[in-house]
Amino acid sequence: MNLNKTKEYLNIVNQQLSKIEESESKNIEDAANVISDTLEKDGLIYIFGTGHSQMFSLEMFYRAGGLVPVHPMLEASVAMYTGTKTSEYERVPDIGKVIFKKSGMTSKDTLIIVSHSGRNPMPVDLAESAKAAGVSIITIASGAFMAGVSSRHPSGKFVKDFADVIIDNHCDLGDAVIDIEGMSTKVAGTSSILSIAIIESIVATTINICVNRGFTPPVWMSGNLDNGDAHNEQHYLQYRNRIPYL
Rank of each mutant, 00 (worst) to 15 (best):
S87V: 08
L3T: 14
P72I: 02
L44H: 09
T84F: 10
A32Y: 02
T110S: 15
K5M: 12
S18N: 15
G66E: 00
Q15T: 13
G51K: 04
Q54D: 12
P69S: 03
K5C: 10
I20T: 04
I12C: 11
G43P: 03
N14K: 15
Y81C: 12
N4C: 13
K108W: 04
K26N: 14
D37W: 06
F56K: 05
D30R: 07
S36Y: 01
S115M: 08
S103I: 03
T50I: 06
N4Q: 12
L3K: 14
Y81P: 11
S23G: 03
D37E: 12
S53G: 02
V70A: 08
K97M: 07
V34A: 09
V114P: 06
H71C: 08
K19Y: 06
V78Q: 05
R63W: 07
I20A: 09
G96F: 03
A32V: 05
V70Q: 06
F56C: 06
I95D: 05
L74T: 01
G83L: 09
K7M: 12
L10T: 10
Q15N: 15
E90M: 02
E21N: 12
S77T: 14
P93D: 02
G83Y: 09
G66M: 11
K108T: 04
K97T: 01
K102L: 14
T50G: 08
I99S: 10
T84K: 08
V114Y: 06
I112A: 08
I113T: 04
F48C: 01
G51M: 05
L10E: 13
H52R: 05
M80A: 10
V98W: 00
K19H: 04
N11D: 14
N33F: 07
E24D: 07
G49S: 10
E40D: 06
E90A: 02
L58V: 11
V13E: 05
